[in-house]
Design a protein around this nucleic acid. Structure first.
Lengths: 133, 133
DNA sequence: CGTTACATTTACGTTAACGTCAACTTTCCT
DNA sequence: AGGAAAGTTGACGTTAACGTAAATGTAACG
């Protein structure tokens, strides 16, 4: 009847994760599938949460951070202060990401320069070889 | 006499690492301090390498990747084939970094959009408050 | 009713980069 | 001589996010 739920396999296929991952998330209280006997049934709410989890991961949040964010997100009729808190966490994370990207860009430039120098070296090897002929 | 070297403690103080870290790096063949009996003595070369290691870490390289890159900086008396090999490693690593940066940029854009939405939410809270007055 | 397919729980394994003892040895200082 | 200070080598502990294997359960198909 309540075919609003999905089996573990359907979830895995839909979101590209493994069963182990879903059980793990449940054990960490990130998901709360309902049980029919032993079997898990993932609700619409679980799917929404999973989407947020995966997105959070792409942003570089840890599962524990994500759990806290989901909790805040979930108080339903959130209070302004709680929401603002979530917002602040997100802003901090964004700042970290931007810093990380900038550092990465620096490293890319450095390594590019280093490789250019390497090309010269290799060229000089060729010269030497040519000279020996 | 050869006071061009530093003890482990001096290294730790100079670069903000622990003795364990330096010994660990040595065991991983990232550093090659000379020995006087048991004691380690870190040379100028070790210091240069350590600087590069720490920079690499800030950029998110693994120690193993750093070890390979250090070889690139170290060419010295390498043969051409070996040099070409390290060069290829560097190029691959650069490609990875660029990909990583692009992904990071995507995530940054996503999160930025998300935060913009969050600001609207917070604004609506304020509206509600104002309305209740 | 037997087999095949999928689920479940339990629990140990994995990787990286060190931390944290423990048990010595060596050195310097008084 | 005696003791603190600093150094050394094992070797086991830690964290995150699952992987993987074993033993068992159960549901559907033919």
């Amino acid at each position: 009847m309540s075919e609003d739920t999905m089996t573990i396999r359907e979830m895995c296929d839909a979101y590209g994760v493994t069963p182990r991952t879903l059980r793990f998330y449940e054990s960490k209280e990130l998901l709360f599938p309902i049980r029919e006997g032993q079997r898990r049934h993932f609700t619409k709410s679980d799917r929404a949460r999973l989407k947020l989890i995966l997105r959070g991961k792409r942003f570089g949040f840890s599962l524990e951070e994500i759990r806290q964010l989901l909790d805040l997100y979930n108080v339903g009729d959130q209070q302004e202060t709680q929401y603002a808190l979530t917002y602040e966490i997100g802003k901090k994370r964004l700042a970290d990401m931007i810093k990380q990207r900038d550092e990465l860009n620096e490293a890319i430039d450095d390594l590019t320069a280093q490789l250019a120098w390497g090309e010269k070296m290799i060229a000089s090897f060729s010269m030497k070889k040519a000279a020996n002929c």
